[in-house]
């Protein structure tokens, strides 16, 4: 290990030479390489982690450049998947690190392969469903993971240590009803808020990987950079006794039962997305409210409605949403693109 490169970090006492050595032998997986994921990946590679895997299903778009620090205009011209563009950039930042970019949609079929060997999992996702999948995998394998999210100027974070802290499922019963929450695409996102939470996320990962559990933040971090509010919510830190995931071992997202189903349709150039769980409960989306949220992002002329559905045009394609959350995306057979657009504009 080259100590010169990491000297300032080694001089920071809690890490020291021993921490740096541990770090060089450790591995982490970043799931989702957007605003949070790309900052976290960059910081971890600079810190001298041994191995980093970055998983992302999307291709870079111009609107990503405002906040996703691993990418630039040249990457945009090359049109690479973000995972591969990130891998290239991360290797340029630190060639001594083993970096692997995986362009894939994380789902119950591949999660156990793609997340294997992670000593910590970093949340850079944009949807609750994938977080609940990470949560299941983490609980099943005893892997710590760090929940992080950012919307507008607000950012959230929580360390989840299986067997020690509560898990994400303790806090939420199921995936929020599709279309019920704002997303970055409909409500926007302030880059500094994402970078701030990514910095905290990376710090938490460093504590885990250098064996400093005593320094971990307990509870939920809730920051609003615009309002200038910095809170740590300590209300509940113990697992919920009725949690199906961490108390009963029912991994409904990892075993596919609660996860959405995305299938290419016979005939039309179209993909169907069926969200998991909620339809069985008879829950319905408020299509009028969703339409209003979409209007600011897409323009009112791109949206139409009937009592049975909401339609919107998006990047040359058309998405049709039904009240139970099912959707058809016409104009593609790419199931991961369908999941991306669904989680971006409707919300999973």
């Amino acid at each position: 290990m080259k100590t010169e490169r990491y000297l300032r970090q080694i001089l920071f006492h809690p890490i020291g030479k021993e921490g740096q050595r541990r770090l060089a032998e450790s591995s982490a997986v970043v799931v989702g390489c957007g605003a949070i994921g790309s900052t976290t990946a960059s910081l971890l590679v600079r810190s001298g982690i041994g191995y980093l895997r970055v998983i992302d299903r999307d291709v870079l778009e111009e609107s990503n450049l405002q906040r996703q620090e691993l990418f630039d205009e040249e990457d945009l011209r090359e049109g690479l998947p973000k995972a591969l563009a990130a891998e290239k950039r991360l290797r340029r930042i630190n060639s001594a690190i083993r970096v692997e970019g995986i362009a894939a949609d994380l789902n119950p079929t591949n999660a156990e392969t793609l997340l294997r060997d992670a000593q910590v999992i970093l949340d850079g996702t944009d949807n609750f469903e994938t977080r609940l999948l990470l949560n299941d995998y983490a609980l099943k394998t005893g892997t710590p993971w760090i929940y992080s999210a950012c919307l507008g100027s607000q950012a959230l974070l929580m360390d989840i240590l299986p067997g020690k802290t509560l898990c994400l499922r303790c806090l939420v019963d199921s995936v929020p009803l599709p279309g019920s929450l704002p997303t970055c695409e409909t409500a926007g996102i302030l880059a500094p808020a994402a970078k701030l939470i990514a910095s905290i996320q990376t710090t938490e990962a460093l504590k885990i990987l250098t064996n400093h559990p005593e320094a971990l933040i307990s509870g939920l971090v809730n920051i609003d950079l615009w309002k200038g509010s910095f809170q740590k919510v300590d209300t509940q830190t113990a697992p919920s006794p009725t949690c199906p995931a961490c108390q009963k071992g029912e991994y409904e997202f990892l075993n596919a039962k609660g996860f959405s189903l995305t299938t290419t349709l016979c005939g039309s150039n179209a993909v169907q997305i069926t969200p998991g769980g909620n339809a069985e409960n008879g829950a319905k989306i408020d299509l009028v409210a969703l339409s209003l949220r979409l209007q600011s992002a897409l323009g009112v002329d791109n949206i139409s409605q009937s009592p049975y559905l909401l339609k919107f045009r998006l990047k040359g394609r058309e998405m049709v949403i039904f009240p139970d959350g099912r959707a058809l995306l016409f104009g593609t057979q790419d199931t991961s693109l369908a999941r991306t657009l669904y989680s971006q504009y409707v919300g999973l």
Binding site: G267, Q272, L309, F330
Partner: peptide, 24 residues
């Protein structure tokens, strides 16, 4: 109307199961 949209509405709003598409 796309047949898949009609099929989904029949299922979703009316509880009627039919098949849409090319039927192989």
């Amino acid at each position: 109307m796309e047949p898949q949209v009609v099929g989904t509405i029949l299922d979703e709003s009316f509880g009627i199961a039919v098949r849409s598409g090319l039927h192989c």
